[in-house]
Design a protein around this nucleic acid. Structure first.
Lengths: 163, 163
DNA sequence: TTCTAAATGATAATGATTTTCATTGACATT
DNA sequence: AATGTCAATGAAAATCATTATCATTTAGAA
């Protein structure tokens, strides 16, 4: 556990953690034209492990345990940055906080449970094709889309519906 | 050179909507089990005319011109109420304020031109069916969806393509 | 007309996210 | 290795959409 004593020139002591590919994280950051900072590397590390769809707050709290020197503004800023560079994909549901995931190489859409927040990823080639057809029909050059399905998952459904 | 004239953005191509009279507004309100107030009637009037996809703020401002006695809390409250009763459909995208429209008898999705802001409404039964199939596959009870297509419309396309 | 719960408007509160700004730090260049 | 510069950071304040609070008003039943 890294403990940083306040008021002291604290050198970051790296805890020995899984040998995640730190070099490729750095490469990603450089590709965005940004400077490599330990905060950014830590953020990428945190995102590449654990729950896939995480909120900025959750990510901040997760980081805060081992790296309390990282402010939430930095987390938000970097997430936004990565989203703009398509390295991260932002999923927004209803009025809930946005969730982020490292952009998967394979495209997918989301099925969201409005009750417990569970997110299921799916991919449907037929839907993709139909979207292209629609765009073509209206003479649009399709550049992107958002498809989010909302509903209640199996568990929430069977749990009855009070509250 | 594409030139974006400000007043020209966000034009909409509308699917035809039937005009609604005050009596049916009152009927709608009673159907929800709510009291008929002049505020609510005015809100419905404002929604049934003009731009189809409006934010709560825009709606409030529009109403404010002729009915400055209507507070925005009332607008928000009633919109939420109507949304819960499915009389109004809420469209949320990105981190932008939610947009509302009187629930169209004919369901539709949107095709957005990212260059001039034009919105084309479309409806595709096959896509709807596939969505239901996806939900069923994962044992979700589908309650709603957001399908937004993004691209460049015919005009913007032929107009050349720099920003 | 009277009564009462529902509705309203003004305002404060909330929660997520963004901005500000003084300080720190990355990194290209000596 | 030391330096200079400007991007990056953290803390705090600000913002923005939305919701809650609460004293007052009003719809509509009695």
């Amino acid at each position: 556990m890294t403990r940083l004593v306040k008021g002291q020139q604290n050198k970051e002591v790296l805890i020995e953690r899984e040998p995640i590919d730190i070099e490729s994280f750095k490469k990603m950051i450089r590709q965005m034209g940004l400077k490599v900072t330990k905060q950014r590397v830590h953020i990428l590390e945190a995102m590449s492990s654990g729950r896939a769809h995480i909120t900025a707050q959750e990510l901040f709290e997760k980081l805060n345990k081992n790296h309390p020197e990282i402010g939430f503004a930095t987390v938000y800023r970097f997430l936004k940055n990565m989203t703009e560079h398509s390295l991260v994909t932002e999923v927004r549901m209803g009025g809930f906080p946005a969730r982020y995931e490292l952009t998967p190489n394979q495209h997918h859409d989301h099925l969201n449970c409005t009750q417990c927040g569970k997110i299921v990823e799916f991919e449907n080639e037929s839907i993709e094709e139909l979207q292209l057809a629609v765009a073509k029909k209206f003479n649009f050059k399709l550049t992107g889309h958002v498809l989010e399905l909302y509903g209640q998952c199996d568990q929430c459904n069977s749990k009855g519906s009070d509250t």
